[in-house]
Computed example of a mutant assay.
Amino acid sequence: MKTILDISIAINKNASSEHLFGLLKNVLVQDLGIGRFVFISFDKTWQIALQEGLNENQISEINIDSIINQYDDIDVLHSSTETGTNKFEIVVPVFHNKKAFAYLLLGDLQGEKVEISPIIKHLKFIQTLANIIVVALENKRLYEEEIKQIAIKKELEMAQTMQSLLFPRRLPNNKKIEVKAYYRPHSEVSGDYYDVVQIDANRTALCVADVSGKGMSAALLMANFQAHLRAQLSISSTIEELVNKTNKRIIESANYEKFITLFLAIFDAKEQTLTFLNAGHQPALLVSENKIVELKKGCTVLGMFDELPKIESETIALPNHSKLICYTDGLTELEDENGNQLEVEGVANLIDSYQNLKEIKTRLEKRIKEAENKSAIDDDITFLVAEFLR
């Protein structure tokens, strides 16, 4: 009873695993006179946590896989030289919630045969001690993991708040241009991005981008990309120059480990033109005069090549009330009940009969909601719709 009390006091004082294993070792060696044992426990992987009476070679010969999941109660060990268990006579498994968490192998039982050794009557006591220690360590591990998860969640929530500040707080709605946007991250933070930047009195930049991958690393790269893009918009003489500089910046930041797809367009209200460049992104859709045109011209993705192999922009004259729809692949990859993806053609069909910008946004949002109700959506979804006025 004193031994159990000592271990309980140590557990209540949040003693280390080394201290608790030391108490178990004292009981086995000093109190019970067991000359040889190995304590195999599970902590992410199966490993030998404690041993007595073995040299390094004998320890390395023990085949842990030959022991685990073969014994569900105290038993005579089926020892073998091939598995390194020939130095032991008894196995004491330790279970918690019907799951094996440890195995104690006992040998050199004061020189007695297993059947007549006085240790036999103490096996349940040994098993109880080991169980108390293993359960305490498992509970401690779960508690520490919970604390870690809470900290990670708080960090992600803070990152989510910070990332939300990257998006424009107000979208243009004036006599020259009207813009609406939708953003749905898959998790707390996202690799999707959209932006609307007033370059000068006449020019407005519209951008939708997508970083490869998800999570914090994608969000950090996107934040870096956003800061660079906004700085370059006012000083780059051409859209090609801007994209080339951005490509180099992404390589510096991500070292070829991530890439960004980008659709960037600059609306000139004075000239009534749209200059765009598509860097490996989903084709934006331009709706004008009852026609839908896919905007594909540009270059490959950014962040993979030191020099972009081919890069070209295009400038289009805009009839009044032309509309632009740009989006990330989370939208085109939405699936119906048969598993068929929406794709670019499906997006075009959705917006074809709608002339009002609000109606277009509402129809796309409805399609996303339908997909959510049928199956889980495992990607970020972003789209931006704009109408150009005179």
Rank of each mutant, 00 (worst) to 15 (best):
I316V: 15
L221A: 01
E271R: 13
Q47N: 12
I266L: 09
K121E: 14
I147K: 14
N202V: 08
S217K: 02
Q355N: 14
I316L: 15
T273L: 08
I311G: 08
V344W: 04
A219M: 02
T161M: 04
I239C: 06
N26T: 13
E240D: 09
L357A: 06
Q163L: 03
L229T: 10
P309Q: 12
G35Y: 03
E337K: 06
T261S: 07
T332G: 04
V197M: 04
I126C: 07
M222E: 00
T273F: 07
T362D: 14
I377F: 03
L20E: 07
Q30Y: 11
E145N: 10
P309R: 11
A15Y: 03
S164T: 02
A218E: 01
N278C: 04
I325L: 07
K374G: 03
C299N: 01
G111Q: 06
D6R: 14
F305G: 07
E18R: 14
I251D: 05
A181C: 04
Y143R: 05
E178H: 07
S16W: 13
N356Y: 08
I199Q: 03
S164L: 00
A317E: 14
A386M: 05
T85A: 10
G107R: 03
P185F: 01
N255Q: 15
A219H: 02
G33D: 11
K180N: 12
N174P: 06
F267L: 06
Q47P: 06
M162P: 07
L302Y: 04
A218R: 00
V94N: 01
L156F: 05
E138F: 11
